[in-house]
Amino acid sequence: MMSEALTSSFFVLASADTSLLSELTIFVLAVFLGFEVITKVPPTLHTPLMSGANAISGVTLVGALFCAQTHNVTLANILGFLAIAFATTNVVGGFMVTDRMLRMFGKKR
C-alpha cells in the first residue's frame, strides 16, 4: 500500500504535463494573493467578509454548468442539476445576505 502510494506520487510528478504545472502555479500564487488582499480586516467586517467569501466559493457553479448538458437522463446529469441548484443557492443567497448586512453598516442613525 505504502510503496504503491509512493510509486504513484512519483508517477504524478514524472508525468505532470505542463497544464498541471501551470495550474499548480496559479493555485499557489492565488493563495498568496488571497493572504495579501485580505490582511488587516477590521473585526466589524469579519462576518460580511466570511459570507461574501462564502458566496465566491459558489463559483463551483461554473463547473456545475458543464455537468448538466445532455438531454439524456443520466446519473451524471442529475448530479449536475443538484450541483447547479446548490451552488446557485450559495452564490445568490451569499451575495444578497452580505449586501443586507453591509447596508446596515452604512445607514445613518
Binding site: 492565488a30 494573493l33 488571497g34 493572504f35 467569501a53 465566491i56
Partner: peptide, 13 residues
C-alpha cells in the same frame, strides 16, 4: 483557471 483562482482566494480568507 477561474475556479482555481477564486477557490484559493476563499481558501486563504
Amino acid at each position: 483557471n477561474l475556479l482555481i483562482i477564486s477557490g484559493s482566494l476563499v481558501g486563504a480568507s
